[in-house]
Each structure stands twice: as structure tokens, then as C-alpha cells.
Design a binder for these strands. Structure first.
Lengths: 120, 120
DNA sequence: TCCTTATTCAACCTTGAGGTTGAATACGAC
DNA sequence: GTCGTATTCAACCTCAAGGTTGAATAAGGA
């Protein structure tokens, strides 16, 4: 499924943008669960939940092994790590920049402190 | 805009599920930028980029101040923190559980190690 | 005042996401 | 083999997402 790294990230974020899927992920932190297990709390059809699981699987966030007719779903926590990786890299960059900026501003002879398209 | 915390998270994840918007976020870690600045690298229309910025803003990931006719966009890095917060909480939970499980398995008289809907 | 620049609003098109229902499939139990 | 259980496949519906173009708005500059 075209595991272009960028697309994988896109799918991972998209996967967690749905509250039901976030809920499923939360549920899976307690332990593996079958599709029917996962479906029971919701008012939606089993097929809908099956689709949700597929979305999570395509994003690499969960895996499914087969066990008789059941397909227990397992949370792949290292995929979550990849997401925090991306976010934290950028967050850090932004914050480093801000602190550098504050340093500079502190040394300034207090004129007008408007900063915008100043760079570029 | 109904700042229900769950919806906010949903919007934040949805926002970062688009590669163009992730790109914009990356660009903003370097410094604030106007909509036209942000649009220049892309082949899509200015209006499309304006929409992307709006999506990011509705998710709380960026803010826009007004400055003459310009609307410089600023990255709100603490919103990124909220996302990592959610992910890391669940990641941690899953990993703690796994390590507890390994402990238990280590103490076991090595029978079949199939684990599934065992809980519940 | 009139023009130019920067951005947004509005209407529209196309595609994909999330839901439904009704088969099809896969496997264990009898 | 046949039945029941667990899950997926397929076709379909509806609505929102991301894109387009063409006006409208806002504010500085001549």
C-alpha cells in the first residue's frame, strides 16, 4: 500500500482524527481485542468498526493476527512514536526559534516590537 | 467554534493529515509568514492556501494577527504539545502493559503463549 | 479619490470518508 | 457435511474536504 513515508504519516494523522478510532486505540492500550469486542460499545454496525480497524491497520497503527475465525487487533505503539517524532521535531524548532528571538529582543534598545515578514 | 476538547483534538489531527498543511507548519517553525509567502512554493491557488491556513487556525495550531492588509500566520507550538500529550499517554499505557505482560510470561512454565481475548 | 496589494467570501465541482445493508468467506463445533 | 460465529467484501448513500474561478473586502500609496 505505497508505504511512502509521507503518506504513512498522513494516514496516521487521518486515522487519529476520528474520535471512534482514537477510542479504539485507547481501548487497545488495555489489551488486544477482537473486532466484535471493539464494536460492542458503539451504536454503529460491525462492518463500520471493521472499516475503522482497517484504516488504523493501513496507517500501521494496529496489526491483526488470525486466530480461528477471530482477528485480534493489536496496537503497534512504535507507530505512535513516529507521530510524536514528527510533531516534537517541529515543536522544538519553533520553540528554539522563539527563545532565540527573545534573546535578541532583550538586547534591543526597545523600539517598536512588531515582528512579521521581517525575515525574507 | 464548539471548542469541545475532543473535537479540537480531532481537528488538530485532521489538520496535520494533509501534507501541504504539515509543510506549512514546518515552514512556520522558521518564522511567521503571510499567506502569500506560504502560497508561493505551491502550484495551488492562493485561495486554497488561505483555506489551509483557516483549517490550521480552527484547529488552534496557528493564529493570525492583522498587520495592514497582511495576516501574518504564527505557529502555536503549545497546540502541538496537546497532540503529543494524547499520543504519549496512550503509547505509554500500551508499553507499560506489554512490559507487565513480559514479566508474567517470564515466570510462566512455558506452555502455549497464545494471548488474545484472554482479558475480558 | 483612485489604484494596487493581500486576503477572504461564495458558488461550484469531484472525490473520498464514514455510514448502511446484504452477500460472501473462513473456520470451529456438532 | 451442515450449522453458527466472526469477519470481510461489495454496492450504495450522503456529506464534507480540497480544489477551482470570480467577486467582495480591507488598507496602504499615488
Amino acid at each position: 500500500m505505497t508505504d511512502h513515508p509521507d503518506e504513512r504519516l498522513s494516514r496516521a494523522f487521518a486515522a487519529l482524527s476520528d474520535p471512534v478510532r482514537r477510542d479504539i486505540v485507547a481501548r487497545l492500550t488495555i489489551g488486544d481485542a477482537t473486532v466484535s469486542d471493539l464494536a460492542s460499545p458503539y451504536d454503529i454496525s460491525l462492518q463500520a468498526v471493521s472499516k475503522h480497524v482497517k484504516v488504523l491497520a493501513d496507517a500501521g497503527l494496529v496489526s491483526q493476527r488470525k486466530e480461528a475465525q477471530r482477528r485480534p487487533v493489536h496496537l503497534e505503539s512504535q507507530a505512535l512514536a513516529a507521530m510524536t517524532g514528527w510533531i516534537e521535531r517541529h515543536q522544538q524548532r519553533a520553540e528554539q526559534r522563539m527563545s532565540r528571538l527573545e534573546e535578541v529582543l532583550a538586547d534591543l534598545p526597545s523600539s517598536d516590537t512588531t515582528e512579521s515578514g521581517a525575515d525574507r
